[in-house]
């Protein structure tokens, strides 16, 4: 009886799903703001910095959700729903796939310590943040197409390809490194906010 009660408690119930929905909505707003923000940083290539900027400002939300709904599936659903909305509003389909995979992995990392260990949750947030790499990926496809196009017109593509290889590798490294740094900063900030506000106000224990 008791055992059954415990497993029952680990399942996501309707109020959990509604809480997840509310946090996802706030997170989605953050992603939207991040899109605008990174657009200001580097117009045209905003997607490169989108995951990083978003990771920087969304730590609070992630930490709050992990504390309020410490059940397996919550993080996965958040990533999936964001991916679903990104995809159906015209983002690249890899946004959905990357969103699902990264959030699932993040969820597993969190679950390993029952969403209690601060360091593991931070790691989980790091992985989760890579979920927004999806919208960046078309850049790679574009380069190929663009070069193919130049070659078709008989231009000297080798030189161009050299230039773009640098730019592309550069952007990839920049994107990854910036996500790592920003996710740590954002996550630590989020955990600080949890202690300072939500735990003190008795909203999470």
């Amino acid at each position: 009886m008791n055992k059954q009660l415990i497993t029952e408690d680990k399942k996501l119930k309707i109020p959990d799903l509604i809480s997840i929905g509310v946090y996802t909505a706030v997170y989605f707003v953050m992603v939207t703001i991040a899109t605008f923000g990174s657009n200001l940083l580097l117009p045209g290539f905003s997607y490169v910095f989108l995951p990083a900027v978003s990771a920087l400002i969304s730590g609070c939300i992630y930490m709050l959700m992990a504390a309020k709904v410490p059940k397996f599936g919550a993080i996965t659903i958040m990533g999936t729903v964001v991916g679903l909305f990104l995809f159906s509003s015209g983002h690249f389909v890899l946004s959905l796939i990357a969103g699902v995979l990264c959030s699932l992995l993040a969820d597993l990392i969190g679950k390993a310590t029952a969403y209690k260990n601060k360091l593991w949750i931070l790691a989980s947030y790091l992985v989760f943040s890579f979920g927004l790499m999806g919208p960046v990926l078309p850049l790679w496809f574009m380069k190929d197409t663009y070069i193919a196009k130049l070659e078709a017109r008989g231009k000297d593509a080798a030189y161009i390809e050299g230039v773009f290889a640098n730019i592309n590798q550069g952007t990839f490294v920049i994107a990854v490194v910036s996500i790592l740094i920003c996710a740590v900063l954002g996550g630590v900030f989020g955990q600080k906010m949890m202690r300072k506000h939500f735990e003190k106000a008795g909203i999470v224990s």
């Binding site: 309707i14 509604i18 509310v22 996802t24 909505a25 706030v26 729903v81």
Partner: peptide
């Protein structure tokens, strides 16, 4: 489990 959060996102 995905539909309910989707509805809430649109609502919220």
């Amino acid at each position: 489990k995905v539909i309910v959060p989707c509805m809430v996102v649109i609502r919220f």
